Simulated scan of single mutants.
Amino acid sequence: MNNLVIQTDFGLSDGAVNAMYGVAISVDSGLRIFDLTHHIPQFNIWEASYRLYQTITYWPEDTVFISVVDPGVGSDRLSVVVKTSKNQYIVTPDNGTLTHIKKNIGISEVRIIDETVNRLPKSGESYTFHGRDVYAYTGARLAAGAISFDGVGPKINVEDLIILYQQEACLDRDMLLGVIDILDVRFGNLWTNIDRSLFKKAGIQYGDKLDVIITNNNKQIYKHRMVFGHSFADSHLGEPLLYVNSVDKIAVAINQGSFAKAYQIGTGANWKINIQQTSERRSS
């Protein structure tokens, strides 16, 4: 174990992330440290959870992840390390950050971080930078082999983890119902929670034209007919399309444009998407 992957909502405009690097390197200068992202929107636990899910399966066994999006820092919320069913480790506050991992990857074991052992020396009076003092220190020690997983602290039940509410996608007769889970931020594509398997169950094929309705708090924001394509090459410049994204979910995009900006689309349980087959089964 010498890979350490770090995610935060700290940004890179000050020295916070650099301090975490320094703590980790001080534990073991041979650690390989990588950034997942430091641009999670402030306090957005849901997005932190999703970005872990989006990334973790592409890393080898024994990789240690640190995720610090922690609006409850200094409170009585727990600090934990979990072992996934794929034998990777995540060091994080127990605040919902593990929601997508638990559902989609699986968690085999959870341990509370014992701060009497796993805390940066001489940091005991600081209660607002656990990313540096607890998570970077513990994650680095685990990745470097200075402690075993058992050495993190006492074991608790996986079912005791805090999990955020997730709206389930479904197929209701000929209509697929889901939500906008998250954005492909740089390009403005909408990533839904509708799995590709639901499209297959509905009998939808590439090239089919579908009616798409997006609502926010039951108010219609968008309605249009679009093609289900393999890639952006299956639509013309500026046209919308449905496609399968990199985590095998259905996504909505504009060819070389930002769908989110064009229609002011957000994310979360109140942003619902309905996709319905039309009588026009295949595009010409």
Score class of each variant (00 low, 15 high):
Q7A: 14
S284Q: 11
P121G: 07
F187S: 08
G96D: 07
G74L: 02
Q256E: 15
Y21I: 11
I105P: 09
Y137M: 10
N274V: 02
D62T: 14
T128M: 04
N2S: 14
R225W: 00
D195M: 02
V227W: 06
R132S: 06
G145K: 12
T37E: 07
V247I: 15
F187D: 06
I204R: 00
A24H: 11
S67Y: 07
V81N: 05
Q220W: 01
L171M: 08
A146L: 15
T192L: 01
E159I: 05
Y58W: 10
H39F: 14
L171Q: 05
C170W: 09
R186E: 14
I107Q: 09
M20F: 10
S67H: 06
Y53F: 15
V152L: 08
F149A: 12
K223E: 13
V179P: 00
N87S: 14
T192V: 03
V134N: 03
S283Y: 09
R282Q: 13
G30A: 09
V68R: 02
R51E: 15
G257C: 08
I214F: 00
Y53V: 05
V152Q: 07
D133P: 08
H130A: 06
R141Y: 08
S67E: 08
G15D: 09
D62R: 14
S75V: 01
V158Q: 12
A146T: 15
P121R: 04
R225A: 07
V27C: 12
D234R: 02
Q167M: 07
K200D: 11
V185P: 01
G106V: 07
M175R: 13
V81P: 05
K200L: 12
A24P: 11
M20S: 11
L241Q: 04
L237Q: 15
